[in-house]
Nucleic acid binder design. Structure first.
Length: 426
RNA sequence: GCAGGGGUGGCGGAGUGGUUUAACGCGCAAGCCUGGAAAGCUUGUGUUCUUCGGAACGCGCGAGUUCAAAUCUCGUCCCCUGCGCCA
């Protein structure tokens, strides 16, 4: 959520961002917001004056009552004020109610290094790593997993629906290995590990998540205002809600671990037989609170951490600088890390690294203290490893001709030393 | 789930309808002092609006009573204690 005072003084910058993001329809929201804000401030002054009058009268009454003198005149005068104040306050409330949704609708300001573009096709490739191998004969990862009894999509979809899966045996073990690999890596970089709540109240998502997520992405718990988390990013952000953090303690670096629950209604369909677009997966997330002047450097560092992990897995990847139309509303700039899929002969999205600047922290009132100053700090989030997609890419990239998978070296120590799965029968 | 107690600034903690409308302490910051530091002293330290004089709001959150609410009433969330239930 943008700061109201920022919006007042920087409407041109916001207009510019809206145009770049292809959200011209929101120009009206901005105008209406500025209008309502002006109205609110005018009404505020009117109400303040009335309340001041009442306070003066109250003080007089107070003095008279203490001296045991008659205050009837003042009391009746104050009574007359009551209705006027009530009216003014009601107008105030109404205006605020109009302003709030507008605030939630405006996206974060794009960083100047974000390329202008119209769709994901305009994302700019920053770097490439590894040798993408084209393979003609490669099994579909889902079928391959089913054949080895590592996954059961049929039964899962019967009992839970499409987009769910049972994982078993070596593949289930590999999921744990991936989690452990990511956690160890982040802990070695001084991140502190957090297992957050898996459900969170609606008001803590407001202003830190895209509005559409409530409808399209998040599962609501019936009979309460709790939502299942689509990523540990959200409870990690909310963890320091309404706090003032001493600048000496910054940056705060967290490694969040949780299952992620997503409805994903929208442009993309759910995988019938696969581990790519699913309703549930595990994710290790990097989340950072830092000083505003440090956030862009931190953004690069988080990307580097994510890259290091994929390099450890030896999966070829490339890094994309998302263009203006593709950066999410909450972020100011986002890198996507895309890993190579030999089956599809293309790179597919596996991680996302965002600097949300003060957008989330403003909504959650997370500030830092530096001398006398108190300011909103910056938040960043980045995928370390998402399990299901990574498992798919391992199955595809390390399939051998004799229908086994080489276990990436970095995972072997977390898989009882297994070098290849399934074990060949002698 | 039931009963009782509670929620006050960055923290601890006063205040139980009306005396400048959050005392006092700690922490933090700036200044003085110092060769430098510590200690000490002084000042500052909730939010918003403002015509920069001030003003309004603020005691978990939301309603209400009253001329006036941290204080009274109702709802709600959370914490503590005890009992119950449970993996």
């Amino acid at each position: 959520m943008l700061e109201l005072s920022f919006i007042r003084n920087n409407s041109d910058e916001i207009k510019n961002t809206l145009k770049k993001r292809l959200q011209n329809d929101k120009l009206e929201i901005l105008n209406s917001l500025l209008k309502e804000d002006k109205k609110w401030r005018e009404n505020r002054q009117k109400a303040d004056k009335l309340r001041h009058k009442r306070n003066v009268l109250t003080e007089q009454i107070n003095r008279l009552v203490n001296k045991k003198q008659n205050a009837a005149t003042q009391i009746s005068e104050a009574k007359k004020l009551a209705q006027q104040i009530k009216n003014a306050e009601e107008t105030e409330k109404k205006t605020i109610k109009k302003i709030k949704p507008h605030l939630l609708n405006l996206p974060n300001i794009l960083h100047k290094s974000v390329p202008t573009g119209k769709s994901e096709k305009d994302n700019v490739q920053l770097k490439k790593w590894g040798e993408p191998v084209k393979k003609n004969k490669i099994s579909h990862h889902g079928e391959f997993a089913e054949k080895n009894k590592w996954a059961n999509f049929k039964t899962a979809s019967k009992i839970s629906g499409a987009g769910f899966y049972f994982l078993s045996k070596e593949l289930a073990l590999m999921e744990h290995a991936l989690i452990r690999l990511a956690l160890d890596h982040l802990i070695s970089k001084n991140f502190s590990l957090v297992n957050p709540p898996l459900m969170m109240r609606k008001n803590f998502y407001e202003g830190i998540v895209d509005l559409e997520a409530f409808e399209n992405v998040m599962y609501k718990i019936e009979g309460s205002d709790l939502f299942l988390i689509p990523t540990s990013e959200h409870p990690l952000a909310a963890m320091h809600f309404n706090e003032i953090i001493n600048s000496k303690e910054l940056p705060l670096k967290y490694a969040g671990f949780s299952p992620c629950f997503r409805k994903e209604i929208g442009k993309h369909s759910i995988d019938e037989r696969g581990l790519f677009r699913v309703h549930q997966f595990y994710k290790i997330e990097q989340f950072v609170f830092c000083l505003p002047q440090d956030s862009w450097k931190m953004h690069e560092q988080l990307l580097q951490n994510t890259e290091e992990l994929i390099k450890k897995l030896k999966i070829p990847y490339r890094v994309m600088n998302l263009c203006s139309a593709d950066v999410g509303n909450v972020a100011s700039k986002t890198f996507d890390v895309e890993a190579w899929s030999p089956r599809e002969n293309k790179y597919i999205e596996i991680a996302s690294v965002s600097n949300c600047t003060d957008y989330q922290a403003n909504a959650l009132k997370i500030r830092y203290r530096k001398g006398k100053e108190k300011e909103i700090l910056h938040t960043l989030n980045a995928t370390a490893i998402p399990t299901s997609r990574t498992l798919r890419l391992i199955i595809e990239n390390f399939q051998t001709d004799n229908q086994t998978i080489r276990v990436p070296k970095a995972l072997q120590e977390h898989m009882n030393g297994l070098k290849e799965i399934p074990l060949k029968k002698k």
